[in-house]
């Protein structure tokens, strides 16, 4: 970032960091208010992506190249979080409602699956 345009780069990227921080806060509000589970998972995913962009900008501003590795780790972890959360919540929901409204479909669904799958 050293060079003749260092000041301009600083203004541009520090301003964008401020805007990203405000967007992060708004996503957090949606995560708290969202009436359903899917809203919250969407908001958490978005917060992860905003954090990745912030870390990439910081890697440029501070001239440390290895901060990109941290952004990659964050990408992987947020994806893993979405996969696990959706799977577990779908299982919990269907298990809770299996006996109540549709007993015959739940029983044949249970007998169809081998039960050894994850």
């Amino acid at each position: 970032m050293s060079g003749s345009m260092a000041g301009a780069y600083t203004v541009l990227y520090q301003g964008s960091l401020v805007i990203l921080a405000v967007a992060l806060l708004l996503c957090l509000i949606r995560a708290i208010r969202g009436p359903q589970i899917a809203d919250r998972i969407i908001a958490i995913n978005m917060m992860g992506t905003l954090t990745i962009i912030s870390i990439a900008i910081l890697a440029f501003l501070l001239e440390e190249g290895y901060l990109m590795d941290i952004a990659m780790i964050y990408t992987m972890l947020s994806f893993l979080a979405v996969v696990l959360l959706t799977k577990i919540y779908m299982g919990v929901y269907r298990q809770k409602h299996a006996g109540s409204d549709r007993p015959e479909t739940a029983r044949e669904h249970g007998e169809k699956e081998a039960g050894q799958h994850e």
Binding site: I88, G110, E113, E118
Partner: peptide
């Protein structure tokens, strides 16, 4: 395995 029966698979 009963716990995981209801989760989406494959």
């Amino acid at each position: 395995a009963d716990d995981r029966m209801y989760e989406p698979q494959d």
